[in-house]
Design a protein around this nucleic acid. Sequence first.
DNA 1: TCTATTCTCGTACACTGTACGGAAATAGAG
DNA 2: CTCTATTTCCGTACAGTGTACGAGAATAGA
Lengths: 238, 238
Amino acid sequence: MTRDGGPGATGVDPEQLWLSAGQSRRGRRPAFSREAITAAAVALADAEGLEAVTMRRVAAQVGAGVMSLYSYASDKETLLELMVDHVSGELPASVALSGDWRADLKAVAHDQRDLMLRHPWLPAALSTRRSLGPNTLAFLERALAALRPTGLDGTAKLEVFAQLTAFVAGHVAHEVLQAAAVRSPDRVAAEARYLATVAADGHHPELAEALAAPARALTPEATFTRFLNRLIDGLGTD
Amino acid sequence: MTRDGGPGATGVDPEQLWLSAGQSRRGRRPAFSREAITAAAVALADAEGLEAVTMRRVAAQVGAGVMSLYSYASDKETLLELMVDHVSGELPASVALSGDWRADLKAVAHDQRDLMLRHPWLPAALSTRRSLGPNTLAFLERALAALRPTGLDGTAKLEVFAQLTAFVAGHVAHEVLQAAAVRSPDRVAAEARYLATVAADGHHPELAEALAAPARALTPEATFTRFLNRLIDGLGTD
DNA sequence: TCTATTCTCGTACACTGTACGGAAATAGAG
DNA sequence: CTCTATTTCCGTACAGTGTACGAGAATAGA
């Protein structure tokens, strides 16, 4: 059951998740690892989408019984949080900062976008959850460092980071949706027919004109960069 | 099973959904209506989140047998799409435009945000789906009209609208998450303790400083407006 | 060797979306 | 009117979900 930001969504206790005691010498030796299980779940999500990540399929992937997973993640929600932090480990946590905070912040955003394109389920996962795991925090640390020259106070810096992440996630979610749609030409054709019908009804003149106008094919990358630049260049001008 | 933007996500055929033939005189007379069913689903999502929207609960709410719903929406995915367009009907589709396209566009974004705050499940629902229903298209029509003075070509206008929507959805998703977290003080305390622990480990100096800095309490509304203004004021400057 | 601890995982249960098919209701044809 | 085609209603059933429970296996220290 996927969480969705509705009332009652509380998340997982970060203390218990990320600060759990280290290895215990007593008892049966673990046959698997949190790392391996998380990686399997991520691979599944990458290949077939978030909905393919079921406890049974993850267990099968890893060669474990289903209930064994619960020794490593007390919850499916916890597993999802682990997945988010796991892929965040791909983000470059330490990169030389240029001192030009706008440029540095743009680099941060591009890194985030690249990550989300590699893991298209990430925007959806983030829209309901926010990780406070070590990898996420390491990346946050870098972003805060990039923002140091702005002289913003702590709250403002955290806010900028949150907004930036939300912006990137929103953009990539749309980009991914677009890309998925394009991969099924029947759908595209059906949608085009439908929109043409709507445009022809006379009640949508602007839409009709917009659809009629020639489409300069702009890469998603270029679109992203333009909007990102607009957002960031505007920062600190008030 | 919620869709999630992973590979294979194709969506629903808009022709079949929105252009289905009108009333058919033959056969048993419908006891319910698409409208009522959709409204019940929306009410459920508003009150308890998207995960509470199950076919059984919607049917119960409406006084129908579960399988009767499938006469009105061939799919749960279809029902979700209906929900999105349903609430989009709350958006003011026709409002006098000022001619100042930046101001008009900001108004559009504020309308979207208000809608999403009223229906906190909407950002998550949109991150995986995009509606082409009549209400959505009516609002799009207004946004395109607002963009007319820019002289942008059709593709660019559509892109701006998509980006703006993504931006708003991203912001509100974060805002809602924050608000939900605040409603459970134990979680907030646990998180604060956890972050303090991390900040004290010496590896997160920027985070430590950011957390130590005093928090100017800024309303979410103000934060949204600031970032929105930055984004929109930057448009058309290149 | 005994015991406490830890991990493994088969079984079971409540819940999900929905395929199937029979019963009920209606409109038009004869 | 009857007959038939069509549509809606919905009980039942089934495969699939997350996970509670608890019995067994493995290990470390006493």
